[in-house]
Design a protein around this nucleic acid. Structure first.
Length: 180
DNA sequence: CCCTGATTCGC
DNA sequence: GCGAATCAGG
């Protein structure tokens, strides 16, 4: 499968949205996550908000005794210093502070502990903070968000008029793991 | 062990 | 240019 303009566009978009390489690979289909990562690098849009990339240790681990050191591949060269890519993926930033959450009937926001089905899982605040809450309003049957937040989360993208292209761009709620 | 991205290199 | 293999880390 060749990297058509279309697929590259999707790849770029999904990558900017923060999807993992494997997720993107599944999304595109016909490609592996390695292919995705490879393409991402080739496109020069590597390194978005990567939490862990302290240092690339070129020093490969010393043979753990029993390692016969097959070394099928050519010796890894020291690798060129990573160029600080300055890809601006800001355009695809997930969710600006959307609607202000209303209070729940009992006067509290939904928390990670109180959130249940039929409650809007739109995050409010910084997930790393204890003040983090969910919107908590009533939602439709299997909707993760309330109607208001759903509109924000699922914005139709004007690409390819036909095919379903309503990609979720909202933040990832707690349990949004893709089924595998 | 699962996952993640990063890198290199044969094709 | 592509992507498998591999690496390194969480």
């Amino acid at each position: 499968m060749a990297w058509t303009e279309d697929r590259v566009a999707t790849l770029t978009k999904l990558w900017a949205e923060g999807l993992s390489a494997s997720q993107i690979a599944k999304e595109l289909g016909e490609v592996t996550r390695n292919a995705v990562i490879g393409k991402v690098h080739r496109l020069g849009l590597s390194g978005r908000a990567k939490p862990s990339r302290p240092k690339r240790k070129t020093t490969k681990k010393a043979a753990t005794g029993t390692t016969p050191a097959p070394k099928p591949r050519a010796p890894r060269t020291p690798s060129a210093p990573r160029t600080p890519e300055q890809i601006v993926a800001a355009a695809a930033v997930p969710a600006p502070p959307p609607l202000e959450a209303k209070k729940m009937s009992n006067g509290e926001f939904a928390t990670i502990l109180t959130i249940t089905d039929h409650m809007c899982k739109w995050p409010i605040g910084d997930p790393s903070k204890s003040e983090f809450r969910f919107c908590g309003r009533k939602t439709e049957e299997d909707e993760p968000y309330c109607v208001a937040h759903s509109r924000v989360a699922y914005q139709p993208s004007r690409r390819r008029g036909s095919s379903s292209n309503t990609k979720a761009i909202g933040p990832n709620p707690t349990s949004r793991k893709r089924l595998r």
